[in-house]
Computed example of a mutant assay.
Amino acid sequence: MADTIKLFAAAPIPTTSLYPYKVPTGKYAVVKSVIICNSASSPVQVVLYIGNVYIMQQHTIKPNDTLIIDDMDIPMLETEEIRMYASATGCVAHISGFERDYVESEFPYVRVRTAVVNTEGGFKVPGDVDAILKTVIICNSSSTNSNATIRCPQLILSQKEIKAFDTVILPKLKLFIPKSNSIYHMATANGMQATFIFEKVVQ
């Protein structure tokens, strides 16, 4: 099946929710990059969700600054949407990726979103499959700084400080996760959401 390269959004970010893209029936989409440019003379706080993935939660874009996030590989299933809004006008978003026909038996991704709290939690890759961990996105949606730890089962992130309303993205991990292994996560304070993006391994 051929990919259709798409520009999912190329628009100013308003102060009320904008839904620039919805995955069509029979398709899935993969977001590859996000570019947000603030042309205003003041900081702007931006909220961005891709499907159910927290990308930004009141993340501050400095005046006349540009934020570029690439190599994310965030899959979205049919009817899922991109949602964004900002605290003030002045920011423009460009979001790119591709669409592909959805065939359940050929869908290559697994996406897990979980709260990261101050007691250790864990999970195995759903579907009882071996997988490659491609990307981890950790969004601190609280007003408190917090330190995040992730192990698979050995550490890949140790007490990483994530400031209030900030996001840490671990791209291009390419870490093989056998189906027998668990992934564990913990933070020093509540209020963080982590999304793990896997690609299934066919052996």
Rank of each mutant, 00 (worst) to 15 (best):
M76Y: 04
S39M: 12
S33W: 04
E120W: 04
L155H: 11
T167G: 00
E99M: 07
G51T: 11
F98I: 06
I69Q: 06
P126I: 05
L155R: 09
N145H: 11
I74C: 01
S41Y: 11
L77I: 12
M56I: 12
Y49P: 13
K200I: 08
G26D: 01
I61M: 05
A29G: 08
T188I: 07
T114M: 03
V136Q: 00
T79V: 07
M1L: 09
M72V: 14
K134A: 04
P153D: 05
N140Y: 05
S142E: 06
I177V: 13
E81V: 15
T15K: 00
K32G: 13
E99A: 04
Y102F: 14
P12D: 10
T195H: 00
P178Q: 00
D3F: 13
V44D: 03
T15G: 03
I162F: 02
R111I: 15
T167K: 00
A29I: 10
V31Q: 00
V202P: 06
K62V: 10
S180K: 07
V92I: 13
V34S: 01
K124Q: 11
I150S: 03
Y102Q: 02
I69N: 05
S146K: 03
I68F: 09
H185R: 02
N181Y: 09
K124E: 08
P126M: 01
K172N: 15
M186E: 11
V31P: 01
C139N: 13
D166E: 15
F98R: 01
S141F: 06
A187G: 09
T60A: 11
S105A: 14
S96D: 12
L173T: 10
G97T: 11
L175V: 13
V116I: 10
F123Q: 01
T15Q: 05
A187P: 08
F123N: 04
V168K: 05
I138A: 07
A189H: 08
K22Q: 14
L18W: 09
I68P: 08
K160I: 10
V47C: 13
S143M: 09
F8H: 03
T195W: 01
A88V: 08
H59D: 12
L175T: 14
H59W: 07
N140M: 02
C139K: 00
K32F: 12
A9W: 05
I55D: 04
I69R: 08
M56A: 15
H185C: 05
Q159F: 07
Q58A: 15
A131M: 00
M56Y: 14
Y19Q: 10
D128M: 01
D166P: 08
V92T: 15
K62E: 13
